[in-house]
């Protein structure tokens, strides 16, 4: 009973704070709401038998990526800018309508689909994850390492004042 209540509470918090992220004017409030969103999703990930991904979500997303966002917001002194009057209101209305329609259609599809029967999760997801990451998926693992290195070097080079 308690896990189910926890899941729906976290789902509600996630939806609420994701709306705060996209609607609020102040970028700092949006970033902090994203932190709350990420932590509530981490709790949901825990309940889906993915403890490692939940912990990584907190360490990487909430602990590093959004801190990076916050640094950029604060160092560039970005205030809550007055959003200028919309000169293309059609785009805004179309977006709202289309994504609401998207949500309804996909929810309908999900309801009508017969999913494959549920299979039990492996008893120790952490250990199996580690083993498969270093055997079957070793190449993508190393490739992601190279990607992160490229991102670091790229970010460093892009922001040098004398080169831009």
């Amino acid at each position: 009973m308690l896990p189910v209540i926890l899941f729906y509470t976290m789902a509600f918090i996630a939806l609420l704070f994701s709306m705060v992220v996209i609607l609020h004017k102040n970028p700092v409030t949006s970033a902090m709401s994203l932190v709350v969103l990420v932590c509530s999703l981490a709790v949901i990930f825990f309940q889906l038998d993915a403890p490692f991904i939940a912990a990584i979500q907190i360490v990487v997303y909430a602990g590093a990526i959004i801190v990076l966002f916050l640094f950029v917001i604060m160092l560039l002194n970005l205030r809550a800018e007055v959003e200028e009057p919309e000169d293309r209101p059609l785009q805004k209305y179309l977006s709202y309508i289309s994504f609401f329609a998207f949500l309804v259609v996909i929810s309908g599809v999900v309801r009508l689909t017969t999913f494959l029967p549920e299979r039990p999760m492996v008893p120790d997801p952490l250990r199996d994850l580690a083993y498969s990451l270093f055997s079957t998926y070793l190449f993508p693992f190393e490739a992601v390492t190279v990607l992160l290195m490229a991102a670091v070097v790229g970010a460093f080079i892009l922001t040098r004042k004398e080169w831009s």
């Binding site: 990487v60 990526i65 992601v144």
Partner: peptide, 10 residues
């Protein structure tokens, strides 16, 4: 998650 980190940085 790793790719999201790289993308956010760049």
């Amino acid at each position: 998650i790793a790719i999201a980190a790289a993308e956010a940085a760049v």
